[in-house]
Each structure stands twice: as structure tokens, then as C-alpha cells.
Amino acid sequence: MAHNAHTTAGHGSHDGHPLVGHLVPISTLVSTALALLVLTVITVAVRYIDVGEFNIWIAIGIAVVKATLVALFFMHLRWDRPFNLLVFVGCIAFVVLMMVFCIMDTSQYRKDMYTGNPSAAQETLEKYAPGAPVARFKSNG
């Protein structure tokens, strides 16, 4: 048994490569990590530049780049079987699908909901639930 294990270990690593899988050199891994750290600094720095609504999109964009780096290099997806990549991209696609449908829905009825504006809240209450709660709300406010 031990003898067998020994021979096969020799088999696999004689050229410094594993029997299965892909060997990613240390330099690639370290530069990936450096790129991730730099991107983290950038994303924090960008926060202080006010470009309004675009800030969030810049932050998400940088996050996507970082995630891609992690997936391709740390997780070996670049050299992995294409189907594994498909699994990963596919499941993200399903999250996006769910998000798009849910946002499309809530953006339609959000104006009928409390939006954090007391007078609008009051209006909504008066419209849909005329009666005690509104009166109490008014008398308190």
C-alpha cells in the first residue's frame, strides 16, 4: 500500500505538476492579490469624489472586476473546465434575473407605499384606511 502511494506520488510530481488540475504560478497569485488590494484602495478613494448616482455604479463595477479576478485566478476558472464556468456564470444570471423582475415590480408600486415622507404616508393612510389610525396620527403630529 505504502509502496504504491509512494510510486504514484513520484508519477505525478516528477515534472513539478500535479496529476490532475492546473498549477497556477505563485507570481500570478501574488499579482492577483496586489491588483485586488489596489482596486480596494481605488474604490474607497472614489467614494470621496462625488459623481452623484454614478458612485454606486462605479463601486459595483470595481467589485465586478475584483470578483472576476478572484474567480479566474484564485479559483482557477481560467484553466478549469468550461462547464464549471457556465455553472458559475449561470447562477449569477439567475440572481440577476430575479433582481430585475423584483425591481421592475416594486418600482411600479413603490409610489403607493410609504416612501418615508410623513405627509405622503398620511395621504396613503387616508386613501386606503380611512379611520382611526390616520386620526391618531394627525392628532399626535
Binding site: 480596494t40 474604490t43 474607497v44 454606486i56 463601486a59 459595483i60
Partner: peptide, 8 residues
């Protein structure tokens, strides 16, 4: 991290 910390 960006979604919670970097959105103001």
C-alpha cells in the same frame, strides 16, 4: 463592502 460602506 461597496454596497454597504461606500454608498453615501
Amino acid at each position: 463592502f461597496p454596497l454597504f460602506y461606500l454608498i453615501h
